[in-house]
């Protein structure tokens, strides 16, 4: 019987360790999951809370159980602040003005879309050239492109502000030194041109932010597409341009989509530059969100609803591109 007890003894302890490990594993797993998801959950249920529930202590956790969810906050998103008291009355409700949310959201969409299309297009072409052609000083150029991403944005904020403020004047000052009258006149005519409060200025800026990323990522993808594809097409009587169009781009398209997600997110989320440069016009949602924080009492329900509306595209993007994202956030350092 000694052998028997020995067997039970030796097989029981590992079993306990095994269960303890399993327990620890699932505990950590669930805790991590909850920690990640909780702020999002909290934002979502806050956006559904009636005004009275938002600031309640103890807070309520479960819609339908703790409180009756309402879409009032979502209606509020599109309306300006209620001035003073008595906001419950119907006639006042009707006279409230439309908020800046629709405008800023439209701006966000326009700026992000144009930025993404141009940045991905330009970056893809540059990446193709880097991948396929022997270019003098290629390593230096690539380092230069990458280094622009290392800059703390605030450092370039000052000169960009100055440059965007009155680029026309800068050019004019230079042109006035040329003693030719029509050139001077041309300088005068563009003197007041400004890139502040304009779609063009902020879009150019966001393209610049996105480009290093696109070039870096797309070069990685092109390096993985065999150059024999183009060579085969070129043997068959196509020019390189046609080969790119017919063979390389269809192959690279999924990669371009994955890359574009990052450009979208950079442009969509940017705050400082648009806050400083586009205070009066062509403003996007992040500064608007910050502005409704206001002073004193914050309407958390409405803020939550605005945030949810603004975050939906990002969450959808994250979901769609989830398999490419890790490679993206590490600039391709992690290969999948």
């Amino acid at each position: 019987m000694t052998t028997n007890t020995q067997i039970t003894r030796t097989s029981n302890l590992p079993k306990i360790i095994h269960y303890a490990k399993e327990f620890l594993f699932w505990f950590v797993l669930i805790a991590t999951f909850l920690f990640s998801i909780f702020p999002l959950y909290w934002m979502f249920i806050t956006s559904l809370k009636p005004r009275t529930d938002v600031e309640m202590t103890p807070p309520t956790f479960m819609p339908f159980v703790d409180y009756q969810p309402t879409l009032d906050n979502y209606v509020d998103v599109f309306l300006k602040d209620r001035a003073g008291a008595g906001f419950a009355e119907a006639d006042q409700e009707a006279t409230r003005k439309i908020s800046e949310f629709p405008t800023t959201l439209t701006n966000s969409v326009i700026i992000t879309t144009v930025t993404t299309i141009l940045a991905v297009l330009m970056g893809t072409l540059a990446a193709y050239a880097f991948s396929r052609f022997q270019i003098k000083g290629e390593a230096d150029m690539r380092f230069f492109i990458l280094s622009t991403r290392m800059l703390p944005p605030v450092v370039v904020l000052i000169p960009v502000f100055l440059m965007f403020n009155q680029p026309g004047e800068l050019v004019n000052n230079a042109l006035q030194n040329i003693p030719i009258s029509f050139i001077q006149a041309f300088g005068e005519s563009i003197k007041d041109f400004s890139l502040r409060n304009s779609y063009i200025g902020i879009t150019l800026l966001y393209i610049t932010f996105g480009l290093p990323f696109v070039v870096w990522m797309m070069k990685g993808f092109f390096d993985e597409i065999p150059k024999e594809y183009e060579e085969a097409a070129m043997m068959d009587g196509y020019s390189r341009l046609e080969a790119i169009w017919k063979i390389v781009l269809p192959e690279a398209f999924p990669a371009m989509l994955a890359t574009s997600v990052f450009v979208v997110i950079t442009a969509w989320n940017e705050f400082v530059f648009v806050l400083l440069l586009n205070r009066d016009n062509a403003t996007t949602v992040p500064p608007f969100l910050f502005s409704i924080l206001g002073y004193g009492q914050v309407e958390w329900g409405r803020t939550a609803a605005t945030s949810v509306l603004f975050l939906i595209p990002i969450i959808v993007f994250t979901f769609l591109a989830r398999n490419h994202l890790l490679r993206g956030v590490t600039f391709g350092a992690v290969r999948r």
Binding site: E231, A232, M234, M235, D236, G237, S239
Partner: peptide
């Protein structure tokens, strides 16, 4: 150019 040499690869 490769495409004009009338060869296949």
């Amino acid at each position: 150019p490769a495409g004009e040499r009338d060869i296949a690869f």
